[in-house]
Design a protein around this nucleic acid. Structure first.
Lengths: 338, 338
DNA sequence: CCGGATCGTCGAACCGGTTCGCACTCTCAA
DNA sequence: TTGAGAGTGCGAACCGGTTCGACGATCCGG
């Protein structure tokens, strides 16, 4: 493999001159520049990433920490990952993907060893164990998901409160007075998945303010349990005319459940979910939903992270906490109660 | 950040001694070793990955190239990725994830710059453009998917021929004499997705040998087109009593299609798919299937790759082409035709 | 005609590890 | 008494880039 020394020799200049000719950081005569570029082509020279990282203390790699927990829905995560990966590449960065179960150890490993210039954390918990490590790291960090303490990191998340309100308001406007909400499993909440109760509390509050009845329940993250959960909810609340789904697995399972009960949407039941458009297409879901915009969030996180890495915003400049406003995508699964 | 020089100073030894004490590559007195380890703890020393890569020409990183094409089904890919990622970690390697559309350029970038010690290629096409580049690279490569030319790389894939035969035999044994097969979109084949016709041809051959009629068709990769495709197939072949699905999107869309037609499984139609168990659970699919074992394939690819990287098998030792035998998972969606 | 700025290039140092060769100290057997 | 050999540690070189300071040449204005 050719080194910059080989390039320099072929071009008949010193190593430093070759380096400057390629980086453009000092004035170089056009003749020399031409000879260097020629040599690069001739030798097929590509700089050695390790050597460059050592010299510049920049790796042009961003660490992406994604946890695939038993009780969360894997395909939903993929969307965030792709948003992050594609955006990073647009900015010249590669992605080091970490799916290790022990996120804290992994995070320490890749930051301390300087494998990455920055970190993106996915599915962040209320009190995330990885956060103290990230704050102590030399590299900047961006989160997708809202923790209790946002100091020292940039945070991006869907406005789950607004999402909850939006769903309730929408059904209220259509005339529904009793509805049910199926959230993620309760132990996701216990583990610190704050987005679950952020949406739920806002929905409950909005329902209360309008004199609606809202039955808040939790659903499993897998089949066949989640199917049973849905049936149980519908059995328990025969008067409910609307169903809010903040649980991807439940949304995916709902068509067959309704089929089994002989119910049709929106005639027998109005349904509104909270998931991305991509998700809806993938899973053939015919329900209106509050768009969760995972690709947009991943994109925002990387953009801000790159700004920090490249020093466009100073280390001590205030960190941002930005919420994406949810939008309701109408797929015709809601109507007035009959 | 502490360097090995700091460790050496604190321990009162030379840098080389500190290095040997940590690597264990030379005999070191227990006293010195203790002092070095002490210093490491005290300073929180972690070796700099770039420096180590430069010195050893080993990065302990594996490149994972995954293409997310419009006409393929993204969540299915995730399973391969996780199999690869987790296995790599078990062997001490991290994953550099590349999702760039231009796979050839990306591959050249990460191999030439020596960012990775080896490469795993996903969704390999019959005549994959990335293959010549991989062969020319200094690093070994492992594929998941079967190309026309397997020289210079280790190849792992599902035995799609066997899968096709298995599906046909299973339905034949139950008494079916006319069945339909829905494959991936035709342009996946045109692009070189050989697994589509490998399964299809074997299925056709098996059907012919048994005097069965098999209607081979292609289906889209997305809703709502794939739903229309399924309806068209069922309309066109009212005599068909069995349906073979080699198309994840079609499998995911089938429940609602059958619901729409008022058909029930296996009473009105026997259905058998080709997808992973994980996929079936995620998408709540109640159909028997030929298990495609993506995690196992990812795992096998990484294991072999690591063996090559670490020189356990020589550069010139013959490369392997290994097929995983499909297994039929019975979920009760097939029966004798009525 | 001289002095200072500007341009273009080079040598050397540095980033932070690993590894080779050598030297010193002991021990033990001839 | 001496020499071989094992056990330990050190210094220096090397991996392949980047960057700083210096230096010669050219150009300009006074």
């Amino acid at each position: 493999m050719a080194t910059i020394g080989d390039v320099a020799r072929v071009a008949g200049v010193s190593r430093s001159t070759a380096s400057y000719a390629l980086s453009g950081k000092r004035a170089i005569s056009t003749d020399v520049r031409r000879r260097v570029e020629e040599a690069v082509r001739e030798l097929g020279y590509t700089p050695n990433a390790g050597a460059r990282a050592l010299a510049t203390s920049q790796t042009m790699v961003i660490g992406l920490l994604a946890q695939f927990l038993e009780d969360e829905f894997a395909p939903a995560m993929l969307q965030y990952m792709l948003g992050v990966s594609n955006t990073a590449r647009e900015h010249g960065y590669d992605i080091l993907l970490v799916t290790e179960a022990d996120g804290t150890r992994a995070l320490r490993r890749i930051t301390d060893s300087r494998m990455v210039d920055g970190i993106v954390l996915l599915n962040v918990a209320e009190h995330d164990e990885r956060l103290p490590i990230l704050r102590a790291a030399a590299q900047p960090g961006a989160l997708v998901g809202l923790p209790a303490d946002c100091t020292g990191v940039d945070v991006f998340d869907l406005d789950f409160e607004e999402a909850g309100r939006l769903m309730v308001e929408h059904l209220h406007r259509l005339g529904h007075r009793e509805v049910a909400l199926v959230s993620q499993p309760e132990h996701v909440v216990e583990r610190g998945g704050a987005y679950v109760w952020r949406l739920q509390n806002a929905a409950l509050e909005a329902a209360r303010a309008r004199g609606m009845t809202l039955h808040a329940t939790f659903g499993s993250a897998h089949q066949p349990e989640v199917g049973r959960d849905l049936n149980a909810v519908l059995d328990a609340h025969p008067g409910a005319t609307g169903l809010l789904i903040n649980n991807e697995a439940a949304a995916a399972a709902l068509p067959s459940v309704l089929h089994g009960r002989g119910m049709s949407v929106p005639h027998d039941l109005s349904v509104i979910g909270r998931y991305s458009d991509e998700f809806a297409r993938t899973f053939s879901l015919p329900y209106s939903s509050v768009e969760s915009a995972p690709d947009r969030l991943g994109r925002m996180a990387v953009r801000q992270l790159v700004r920090r890495i490249e020093g466009e915003v100073g280390q001590e400049e205030p960190h941002v906490v930005r919420f994406v406003s949810p939008e309701l995508v109408d797929r015709g699964s809601t109507g007035s109660p009959s």
